[in-house]
Design a binder for these strands. Structure first.
Lengths: 255, 255
DNA sequence: CGCAGCATTGACAGGGGTCAATTGGCGTGG
DNA sequence: CCACGCCAATTGACCCCTGTCAATGCTGCG
């Protein structure tokens, strides 16, 4: 299991939502009072299956998860990465059939809330309804940045950009993980970036040579965030974090 | 100007929303009664600028538009394509700073609605609020399919897939355009697909040789939809059209 | 009818893919 | 505590898809 604080209910979800939406104490209490069941899943477990309906809303408490799609001939692309605190799927509140699969990237803990509870909550509280839409929109914004990343940047910048993004997103909701190793295999990085595992390996070595990442055995972590940002052509505007300007000014660069 | 019916108010928007959401007659009347101003823009006009706020909601009545982002060294990626009937930007109802630029791909006509009118409408009518979110989610779903397309398909399948998508999306809301030429230059196709104009040219020639597209001078149109679908590995599940199964069964294949 | 921008073509280069063999880390069971 | 086995990582050789550069041809518009 990842070296992480044991989840204490929906605190991570709250921190995540608060990072982009103003919520009253009442709103926060309403979220904290949501009924949920805890679920632990192994790496690779399917959480939502493409083409099926889904009537639960899973919140990621620990571990990473991802959305992915496959081509007819077996090519796999990860189209979204979910970090601790992220709601895994608000889409099924509005659309009936999932257009993609959601899966655990490593061992995860989920808080599972029935969709109808969420529906009740957002019917009663417009500010929470709004927070849900904002979360959906930010995920879409991240997807657009990924399109730019995969479509127009070479392997080195692409990989550097992803590592930067993970860093900044962890800083928003799961601060305790910011300093830890990336719990991602090279094959998973390949599927995240539209590359092959072999080329990820070569590129990782190049990032290491540049001093941007540090590696020990199988572990990857950031070596020098500023250098990584340079190589990545990274700006965090697309994360729509309220204190984005702080990041831009390098306030977090030392973190 | 594209050879298209002159827009009659917000009819296209209505048809678009109705394609994925059930709306009462009251809802429909409320939309039709929205105040809007008509605006004509030349190809290339900037509609929303990255980094700025936007307090209007533009609806595309005729012509194509797109969202795009650029890397620091000038690489351009189109991250969404908007067709007649599409709302160009619900995001600014919820987020303050645009993370990308929206631009006219060719001469366009817009219906411009003040954000506050939309806000008033969706506050009063939950079913319309829901329709807005569904529209946002479907755009996100299309973005995910693009990630798969750009990340994991080669140039031939990638281009075929895009042409298929445009066909099916036009069939949903702007049926009169389904049979017409693609109003897109090869350079724009390159920016849509993460390729170069030169390679688009080669690939287009290959699609023509395969009989999938027909070309005359500068004009491109579908030659054989079934062949195109095969080359593209295309399934329209991700468009979340209510009659998707009809498409899957080939009911529209002859159109 | 001449220009500007798009399309087309060829030659060449290179980034990243493919294949296959080897190494290394690490959990498991003896 | 060590040996085994599996899966991830690494490496090298080679190739091909796509990018780059540059010249030429079209085509629609003023």
């Amino acid at each position: 299991m990842p070296p992480e604080l044991a989840p204490r209910g929906l605190d991570f979800l709250l921190r995540k939502l608060l990072s982009h939406s103003l919520l009253s104490t009442d709103d926060q209490n309403a979220i904290a009072a949501l009924p949920f069941s805890l679920r632990r899943l192994d790496a690779g477990s399917v959480i939502i299956r493409e083409g099926e309906r889904c009537d639960i809303c899973p919140i990621l408490l620990s571990g990473f998860a991802y959305r992915h799609k496959m081509t007819g001939d077996g090519g796999r692309q990860i189209v979204a990465l979910k970090l601790p605190g992220d709601p895994l799927d608000f889409q099924s509140l509005y659309l009936t059939r999932a257009d993609h699969t959601v899966q655990a990237l490593n061992p995860v803990e989920l808080a599972v809330i029935p969709n109808r509870e969420i529906e009740r909550l957002i019917m009663a509280r417009p500010s929470l309804s709004r927070a849900v839409v904002v979360d959906i929109l930010i995920e879409a914004s991240i997807g657009r940045e990924w399109l730019l990343n995969i479509g127009r940047r070479n392997a080195l910048a692409r990989l550097a950009h992803l590592i930067c993004e993970i860093h900044y997103r962890l800083a928003i909701s799961a601060t305790s993980l910011v300093e830890s190793d990336l719990p991602v295999t090279q094959e998973q990085l390949a599927d995240l970036l539209g590359l092959t595992p072999v080329h990820i390996n070569r590129t990782l070595k190049e990032l290491e040579r540049a001093g941007a990442v540090a590696r020990a055995g199988r572990r990857i972590r950031i070596g020098n965030l500023d250098r990584l940002r340079d190589l990545a052509d990274f700006s965090d505007l697309y994360l729509h974090s309220p204190d984005a300007t702080m990041h831009d000014r390098g306030v977090m660069a030392g973190a």
